[in-house]
């Protein structure tokens, strides 16, 4: 099992009140799965994504990722896990604006200490996988939205993580480009990658094998296809 969460709670303190963003999430994900987390805003899907992505730790409960208990890790240990195990794709692309596509894709490898030759090779391979081999020296401002998101996907792939976490990956794109991006995800899933897509669009969720619906911090239902 790649991901096991048991009774995951996340509580924020807002003023004098406790707000429970997640109220006991139990989730199991196998290697190679492709599924979506859906829910209206405030349902806790962003919070869940932050926890799965090791950007945050739960208030209560357990999270085991690839055999490692990450729920009690500190900042730097989480950074290490993110570097090795997680590839993020964000709605707003989140590329470094002044860096080339190649350099953006290299970034995770810089923090895992790879040599420059190795970095360059891997980054080029990842960019080729998203059909951007001819754009490696372009800066984000010189690329279209769809191309930017593909650079972001290449960055997520480059360090061969256990999970690729995509948070509203098509939120800034029109439907045609959205389809292209989802096809890219489909392709990399076929190569054996585990992909989790967080979205509020049913159309996007329909590309996946399993949809988890969240409401008020709990899993409302799970739909398998």
């Amino acid at each position: 099992m790649l991901i096991i969460t048991r009774n995951l709670w996340k509580t924020y303190r807002v003023g004098s009140e406790d707000v429970h963003a997640l109220r006991g999430i139990d989730l199991e994900v196998e290697k190679g799965e492709y599924f979506a987390i859906m829910g209206p805003s405030g349902s806790g899907k962003s919070t869940l994504m932050n926890l799965i992505g090791c950007l945050d730790t739960p208030t209560k409960g357990e999270y085991i990722l690839n055999g490692k208990a990450v729920s009690k890790m500190n900042d730097d240990e989480l950074a290490f896990i993110r570097n090795k195990e997680i590839g993020f794709v964000f709605q707003a692309y989140n590329l470094l604006p002044r860096a080339t596509a190649l350099h953006n894709v290299e970034l995770p490898l810089i923090y895992s200490g790879n040599g420059s030759k190795d970095r360059m090779e891997k980054a080029k391979r990842a960019l080729a996988m998203v059909d951007l081999a001819d754009r490696i020296n372009h800066k984000p401002s010189e690329l279209s939205g769809g191309q930017r998101q593909r650079v972001a996907i290449a960055r997520a792939l480059v360090n061969e993580p256990s999970i690729i976490l995509a948070d509203e990956p098509t939120g800034n794109l029109d439907s045609k480009v959205s389809r292209e991006i989802m096809e890219v995800f489909g392709k990399i899933h076929d190569q054996g990658n585990t992909i989790i897509v967080v979205t509020h669009e049913q159309e996007i969720a329909d590309y996946t094998q399993r949809i988890i619906y969240l409401r008020d911090g709990k899993i409302e239902k799970v739909v398998r296809k």
């Binding site: 900042d75 730097d76 290490f80 993110r82 570097n83 989140n94 590329l95 923090y111 895992s112």
Partner: peptide, 8 residues
């Protein structure tokens, strides 16, 4: 971004 991709 840097932290998300693993910067300590």
């Amino acid at each position: 971004i840097r932290k998300a991709v693993g910067a300590k």
